[in-house]
Design a protein around this nucleic acid. Structure first.
Length: 364
RNA sequence: GCGAUAAUGGUGUAGUCUGGCAGCACAGGAGACUGUGGAUCUCCUAGCCCGGGUUCAAAUCCCGGUUAUCGCC
C-alpha cells in the first residue's frame, strides 16, 4: 500500500497505491472542493500533470447531494477525473461561519449554507458520505479547535477526535478505499505527541496532521508538525492538511511529510501572486503594464507559453474569469513542477542544496 | 459683448444651501491570503482653479480674475 523507495535525511520518496493507481510521494493535491477546481476542470488537471486532488465530502453532501454523485457512479465518473481522489471529512468547516456548526458529544451539527437545513454529522455519517462519493482516500471525522482556543479546548478536541477515529474505522467498510486518520493537538507539544501516538496505533492507512495553517505563526505550525512526527511510524504515509506555501512544503518534506493539499497557490493566484523561478511576483503591479515577457521565462505552463505579463495584468485588473483561470493554471503548474524538482533532489540526495537555492528566492 | 452654470488627489465624484479635522470609488505603492466565502483584507501615497475679503474658523459666505459648457445679442 505504501512503500519507501528512496531517502535523503528524513525526507523520503514513496509509492502510495490506491484503486485508481499509484502515486509517487511527496505530492501536492490541488483542492477541488465541489468536484471542480475554481476556474479549473478535469482536462486542465490532466494537462498540468495533476494526478491527485481533494474534494470536500461535507460540501458535496450538501450540494449537489449524495444522490447525484451516486447516480453518476462516484466522484471520478461524475467529474471525469482519472487520477487519485481524496475527500476531506468536513471537520475543518467548523472554522467557517457560514456552516454555523454546533458541537455535540457524538458529532457536529452543520448548517447547509445552500438551503439552511441542519445536519448532524457523526463519524458513521461521514464514512457513509465518503464511501458513497467513492474517493480513493477518505479521512476520519475530526474535531478541530480554532486557532486561539485555550489548552482545554484543544484537549477536548483530541479526546473527541480519538473517539471518533475509532468509530470511523468501525464504520469504514469499503476496504478498497484507503482511510487516513487525522491527528490534532493544537500548538502544544504534549498534545501533538499524545494524538499522533494514539492515531498511529489505530489501523489507519496513513496519518494526517490536522489543525495547522489556521492562522498561527509559521514557528508554531512547525512546532506542531515536529512534535507529532516522531510518533508516526516511518512506513505510513504522512499528510499535513492545508499546507501550503512552497516554503512550508519544502520544509515539511524535509521533515518527512509525504502529502499536502492547499488552496494557497490557487487563491494566491486569483489575487495576483504568481510563483516564479525567481520568487513571488504580483502581476497587478503597474510595472508589468507594458511587460511583454511571460510570467516566468522558465515555466512551461499554458499561460506562460501563450501570454504576456502585460496581458495577464490586464485581465487581472479587469477581474475577468479568463485571467483567474490563467493565473490559477500557472500557479498550479508551478506547484507540480516544484514537487517534481523536490523528488528529483531527494533521489539525488541533494535536498539540502535544493533548499538552499530555493530559499534565495523564497525566504522563510 | 452679455447672462447662467460649473471648477475638489492621476481619473470620476461627495461635502457647499446651514462655515467647524475634506469622504468615497478606481488608478499608484507596500503587505497579507495555507483540509476554497468567486470581485478578499490591511496599511500607505496623493486634492479644494487663482487673488483678495469677512470670520476665532472658509472647499463652503462675499468681491475680482481665469478656464469650461450652455443660452442670448
Amino acid at each position: 500500500m505504501f512503500k519507501i523507495t528512496a531517502e535523503d535525511g528524513k525526507a523520503r520518496i514513496g509509492k502510495l497505491k490506491t484503486r485508481h493507481g499509484t502515486i509517487e510521494t511527496p505530492f501536492f493535491m490541488p483542492v477541488a472542493t465541489r468536484a471542480v477546481g475554481k476556474y479549473i476542470g478535469a482536462e486542465d488537471y490532466k494537462k498540468m500533470g495533476v494526478t491527485a486532488i481533494i474534494s470536500n465530502s461535507l460540501i458535496l453532501y450538501f450540494n449537489p447531494s449524495l444522490e447525484v454523485i451516486k447516480n453518476a457512479g462516484g466522484i471520478h465518473k461524475f467529474m471525469d477525473f482519472k487520477g487519485i481522489s481524496f475527500t476531506d471529512c468536513g471537520g475543518f468547516q467548523v472554522s467557517r461561519d457560514s456552516f454555523s456548526s454546533k458541537q455535540a458529544k457524538k458529532g457536529i451539527y452543520f448548517k447547509n449554507p445552500y438551503d439552511r437545513s441542519t445536519h448532524f454529522i457523526t463519524p458513521k455519517k461521514s464514512m457513509e458520505i465518503q464511501q458513497t462519493i467513492a474517493s480513493d482516500v477518505a479521512v476520519s471525522f475530526d474535531d478541530m479547535a480554532p486557532y486561539g482556543s485555550d489548552k482545554k479546548r484543544f484537549e477536548k478536541a483530541i479526546e473527541r477526535t480519538h473517539k471518533w477515529a475509532e468509530e470511523s474505522l468501525k464504520y469504514h467498510t469499503d476496504k478498497k478505499q484507503l482511510l487516513f486518520g487525522i491527528s490534532q493537538g493544537g500548538f502544544y507539544k504534549d498534545l501533538r505527541k499524545k494524538s499522533a501516538k494514539f492515531m498511529n496505533n489505530l489501523d489507519f492507512d496513513g496519518i494526517a496532521i490536522g489543525g495547522v495553517a489556521i492562522g498561527e505563526p509559521r514557528k508554531e505550525m512547525y512546532l506542531a508538525v515536529k512534535s507529532a512526527l516522531p510518533y508516526i511510524s516511518k512506513n505510513k504515509p504522512r499528510y499535513v492538511m492545508g499546507v501550503g506555501s512552497p516554503q512550508d512544503i519544502i520544509e515539511m518534506v524535509s521533515l518527512g511529510i509525504d502529502c499536502f493539499d492547499s488552496i494557497f497557490p490557487a487563491r494566491g493566484g486569483r489575487h495576483g501572486t504568481m510563483f516564479t523561478s525567481e520568487g513571488k511576483l504580483d502581476i497587478n503591479k503597474g510595472k508589468y503594464k507594458l511587460d511583454l515577457s511571460p510570467i516566468d521565462k522558465k515555466c512551461d505552463c499554458y499561460t506562460c507559453k501563450n501570454h504576456t505579463r502585460s496581458y495577464i495584468r490586464h485581465l487581472s485588473k479587469l477581474k475577468e474569469p479568463e485571467g483567474m483561470r490563467l493565473k490559477t493554471i500557472h500557479n498550479l503548474q508551478f506547484m507540480m513542477n516544484l514537487m517534481k524538482n523536490i523528488k528529483k533532489a531527494i533521489k539525488n540526495k541533494k535536498l539540502n542544496q535544493f533548499k538552499k537555492e530555493f530559499y534565495k528566492f523564497y525566504p522563510l
